[in-house]
Amino acid sequence: MANQVEYALTEEMLPLLQKECYVTIATIDYEKNIPYVKAISWVYAPNVQTIRIMIDNRSRIVENIKTNEGVVLTLIANGSTYSITGSAKIVTERIENLPLKLSMIEMEIQEVRDVMFYGAKMTITPSYEKTYDAEAAAKLDRQVMEALKKKE
């Protein structure tokens, strides 16, 4: 996909974003008007044009999107780095029946670019582990992903 602009997720990217994975989200800070970047893992793409994320409802990201709907997700996968640009909206300020106060954000994809620098490829996909109670983490992850899939 190098030097190409897509207007939706590719067939290879869609399944990567249908499970918890490491991505970064960039928004424009509502007070400072500069980029604000945060790593997140609760993402779900129900189709090639849409990505949903779940985020703490006290996060700066929520206020940033209320002020400026432009967002960029960065995904490292398939040996490359992808910039996924779109407009986001707060779908639900507070998801009920979850132990944390989470907001659901939905992003409509406008373009997908391979932004890996020339002559290189990623050899390892980023991985992480939860550092709190493994059983509690797994339960919360299941609850959040179920909420992302059904969209309240």
Rank of each mutant, 00 (worst) to 15 (best):
A2L: 04
N3E: 13
E11H: 13
L14N: 13
Q18L: 02
Y22K: 12
T27R: 05
K32Y: 01
N33E: 08
I34T: 08
V37Y: 04
A39I: 06
W42D: 11
Y44M: 07
Y44P: 03
A45K: 13
A45I: 01
P46K: 08
N47T: 12
V48Q: 14
V48M: 15
R52N: 12
R52Y: 06
M54N: 13
I55M: 04
N57C: 02
S59Y: 02
S59D: 07
S59A: 11
V62R: 00
I65N: 00
I65W: 01
E69M: 03
G70A: 04
G70Y: 07
G70W: 04
V71L: 00
V72A: 11
L75I: 12
L75D: 13
G79L: 03
T85L: 02
G86T: 06
G86C: 07
A88M: 05
N97A: 11
N97R: 13
L98F: 07
L98G: 09
P99F: 05
L102D: 07
S103T: 10
E106V: 07
E106A: 09
V112P: 07
V112A: 03
F117Y: 10
F117T: 14
Y118C: 01
K121N: 15
T123E: 14
T123A: 09
K130R: 11
D133N: 10
L140N: 05
V144E: 04
A147N: 07
L148Y: 12
L148W: 06
K149L: 11
K151P: 05
